[in-house]
Simulated assay, not measured.
Amino acid sequence: MTAITFTDIPVSEIDLSDTGFRITSPCHDIEHLSASISQYGIMVAPRVVYGQNKYIVVSGFRRIEAARYAGLSRITCRVMPAEETLDAAMAAVTENAFSRELTPAELIRATALLLRFMDPESIARNATSIFNRPLNTGYINTLARIHAMPDSVFDLLDQGKISIKACKTLVSMDAETRTEFLHLFSLIKVSSGIQMEIIAWAKEICALEKISLATLIQQSPLGDSESDGSGVAGSGLGHRDMSALGKQFKAFLVQRRFPALTAAKKQAREHINALELDSGLQLAVPENFEGLVYIIQMEFKNVDEFKTRLNRLAELAKNHDFKSLVDRKV
Rank of each mutant, 00 (worst) to 15 (best):
V293R: 14
E305Y: 09
A207R: 14
R256S: 06
A105V: 05
T177R: 10
G291S: 12
R145G: 03
N273I: 15
K203R: 14
G20K: 12
Q297V: 13
L245G: 07
M43W: 12
L107V: 04
Y50F: 14
N96A: 11
I217D: 11
N132E: 02
D155T: 09
K318E: 08
T24L: 10
N132G: 08
F117L: 02
S34Y: 05
V153L: 00
D151I: 09
K203T: 06
T103E: 14
D87Q: 13
A284C: 13
L33Y: 05
D327I: 15
S152V: 10
G193L: 15
E65Y: 11
T94C: 05
F300G: 06
L213M: 08
E101P: 11
V79R: 01
D174E: 13
T94K: 09
N273L: 10
M173A: 08
L281H: 11
I23E: 00
H320Y: 10
S186Q: 13
D304V: 11
R22G: 01
V49Q: 09
N141Q: 05
I217Q: 11
R328K: 15
I272Y: 02
S129N: 15
Q282P: 03
A105P: 03
A92F: 02
G60A: 03
M196P: 06
G60K: 02
F21I: 01
L72Q: 02
F131V: 00
S59D: 12
I4K: 10
Q218T: 14
D304C: 07
A314G: 14
P120Q: 01
L156W: 03
A45H: 12
L86P: 08
R145P: 04
S191M: 02
I198N: 04
R47N: 07
E204A: 09
I123V: 02
K307V: 07
I146N: 00
A110Y: 00
V285N: 14
A35G: 06
V49N: 04
S230F: 15
A92I: 01
A92L: 03
V254E: 07
A88V: 03
I162L: 02
D304K: 11
P134A: 04
S220R: 10
S36L: 09
L114F: 00
S122T: 06
T137V: 12
A67K: 04
P120H: 07
V58I: 05
K189E: 12
S25C: 07
S34E: 03
G20C: 03
E204I: 12
E31T: 10
G246C: 06
I42V: 04
A110S: 07
R116A: 00
D228L: 06
L216S: 03
A3K: 08
E276W: 08
L113G: 00
V190D: 07
A105K: 02
K210I: 06
